[in-house]
Every structure is written in C-alpha cells, then in structure tokens.
Design a protein around this nucleic acid. Structure first.
Lengths: 204, 204
DNA sequence: GGTCAACTGGACTCGCAGTACAGTCAGGAT
DNA sequence: ATCCTGACTGTACTGCGAGTCCAGTTGACC
C-alpha cells in the first residue's frame, strides 16, 4: 500500500495538529516534513508557501466545522421539532462535544489566525471572514424561526445574537486556552443556553 | 530635554502599537528599535529577549485594564447604588468606550498571547492566567452582590458568569478583528447586558 | 578625575522561510 | 518498449530576524 497516495492530506493533518497546539508561527516547515516523512522539496511541491498551507488548513477546518453544525442541529431537530428546543438541544450537544475532548478543544483556528493576520495574505483573511459571516447567517436564521413562535422578552439585534454563538464559543476557547482549564467553552455555551431560555420564554 | 529619560517606556509604547496591529511574531526587534530611534544593543540592554518584552507589555496592559474597570464601575456606582444597575451602567460605559475607539479596540493582548503561547515562557503564560482569574473574581463578586438582592430566575454557576464578561469581550474582539467590523464587541456586551436584565429581573 | 548607567556599533551564530534545480521513480499512454 | 508526467528526493543557496559578545562612547553625579 502506497503511503504517498495522499501526502497532501498527511501534511495538512500534521500541520493542523501542530498549529492548534502551538500556533502557526511556532510551527516550522522542518517539523511538518519530519512528521509527514517527506522532504522539504516535497512540501513546497504541494504548497507554494506557508500561506498556501494556511489557506488549505482554514478551508478544511471551516468545512469540518460547518459539517459538524449541520450534523448537530439535524440530530437536534430529530429529537424535537420546536425551533427553540432544537436550538437548545443542539447547543447542549455542542457543549457535551467540547467537554468530551480530553485535552480540551483544539482551539479555533479562526481566532488563532485573526490575531496573527498580518502574517497571512488577503485570501486567508477573507476565508476567515466568510466563515464567520456564514455562521452569523446560519444562527440568525434559526433565531428568526424561533422568534416566529416565541415573543422575545427584550428586543435584540438578530445579527448580533447570531454572532453571539460564535463569540461565546471563541471567547470560551480563549479563556480555556489561557487558563489551561478544560470546560470553560462548554460552560459558556450552557450559560448562553439559559440566556435563550429566558429570552424566548413566552410563546406567541 | 533628554529623549532618553524613558527609553524603556518608549520601546513599550512602540512595541504595543505594533503588536496589537499585527501580532507579536510579526513585529521585529528591528522595527521597534527603528521606531524608538535606538540601536539593537540598546534594546537588549533593556530587555533580555523578546519574552522579557512580552512580559513587560502584558504587565502594563493588565494594569491598565484593571484600572479601567476600577474607574468604570466606580463611576457606575456613583450613578446608582443598586448592584444590578451599577453593573448594567458599567457594561454600558464599557460598550460605549469600545465603540468610541475609531479604529476599533486594539484587540486584547490576552487572546493574542493565548494563541501563540508556545512562543512565550511560563512567566508570560502565568501573567495571562492571573489576569483572567482576577477578572473572574472581580465579576463573580459583583454578581454575588446582585444575587443577594435579586433572585436569579435560573441557577447559574457564578464563576462561569464572571468569566462570561471576559469571554464576551474576548469573543467580540475576535469577531471584530476577523470581520473587520467595528462594533461587534460592544454589541456583544449589550446583548450580555440584556441577559443580566432577564436573569436578575425579580427582587427578593 | 573616576565611576556608573545608558547606551552605540559592529561582528558573529543560528534557525527558519523560500528559491532553484538536477535527479529518481512508478504508472499510464502510445 | 519507450516516453512522459506527476510526485517526489536531496542539496545548495539567499536572506531575515533573534540573540550573543563585546569594545567603546557619553553624560551625570560624587
């Protein structure tokens, strides 16, 4: 069996693990090629430079995250058809998933690149932006569905509320990374869940 | 007047601006010394290495942030003695402050270092940790005061609620950095404010 | 006049990104 | 059977930035 079948994916796997553990800049091409058991030349054959690697990693990561959300809320919908309860179940599943990761969540590539963005070119930054806007749209849509059934007790900006899902996750990951604790992100999500329960308590 | 009176502070000012703009790794000592109009030798006279610079920057930043919170909530307390309203006013002031910064908030050094932490030594990481734990304690105390007067409608973990202030700010800053928008952090704070209003609606 | 803190300036090592390019090797097309 | 191409290997080189070493300068104060 030829190990070379998918060298590109192997590079991405190794690079992603290293980048999530210690950041993009601290990850050298040297150690990536050592891990993937290829030569430096081989690396540059697949990726023009470190920017191209970053772009590919982000694309993969975002696709995976979107697939995860799709799956999570599809499962939630199966359990309960009410849009509010679907959201609450989905968030619970998300929190559980974050908690189950023994070493804590790898940490979001989005934040990691956002804070080093001068290192990256316009393409990378745009991918980042589009991903967050995508999540805004996704959650905004879900909240609007909820608001059709439940009267919000306080007026809220729906875009901002959509962003709050991403923000709470990102913020929680920052905390857990800095504190070296394991469940801050999941706790923050659970707190956000009680927010939604309070906000959408009254059926129309 | 001797410009050299406080070279160390000048280095820190220039470094902080550069680091907040483009990240720690992307900021070279070369450009710092150029900006501060000193020699490379002069830089290393003041700071043993880049880690020492990072530590000094973090210390200064954390002190400034603590002073800002002290001032903000002291002003809020003057306006209203009720602990809940004091918190709500303080958060409003914080949101306004974030909004008034024309280029957006410089971005929190905490998150920036959290995601590049392998670059830094234990001292830097510990400073980071202590700062967040300090904020947890500060806000937890304030929420406990509130809970003595108002019955929370839902049971919440007070440590997690304290962390949520930091988390919402950090998360908002990540979003606004990645999206290149200007008011995400302040919007997230305002949303968190309505959370508190809903949570602590009933006086004991 | 001597001491010390706060530098300057230059030379050097090291690690890493990125370039260049010549050569290898397996598999499919012709 | 031969040729071509894609996926590499290996080596050598440039250039940049961090960090070290150190000898020398300058101004302040004692």
């Amino acid at each position: 069996m030829d190990q070379r079948v998918d060298t590109r994916s192997r590079i991405l796997n190794i690079a992603e693990a290293a980048v999530l553990e210690k950041g993009f800049e601290a990850t050298s091409i040297e150690e990536i090629v050592a891990g993937a058991e290829i030569s430096r030349g081989g690396f540059f054959y697949h990726f023009k430079d470190k920017n191209a690697l970053a772009r590919a990693m982000l694309e993969r990561y975002i696709d995976a995250e979107n697939a995860l959300y799709d799956d999570l809320f599809a499962r939630a919908r199966e359990l309960n058809d009410d849009p509010l309860h679907c959201m609450l179940i989905g968030l619970k599943l998300l929190a559980e998933m974050l908690e189950e990761m023994p070493t804590g969540h790898p940490g979001c590539v989005i934040a990691s690149t956002a804070y080093q963005d001068r290192l990256f070119d316009e393409g990378v930054r745009d991918l980042n932006r589009q991903a967050i806007l995508g999540w805004r749209k996704r959650f905004r849509g879900m909240f609007e569905e909820i608001a059709q059934v439940y009267e919000p007790r306080e007026a809220v900006n729906m875009d901002a509320l959509g962003d709050m899902v991403s923000g709470v996750v990102e913020g929680g990951l920052v905390l857990q990374r800095a504190l070296r604790e394991h469940n801050n992100a999941s706790e923050q999500i659970m707190l956000f869940r009680t927010y939604l329960k309070l906000l959408f308590a009254d059926k129309k």
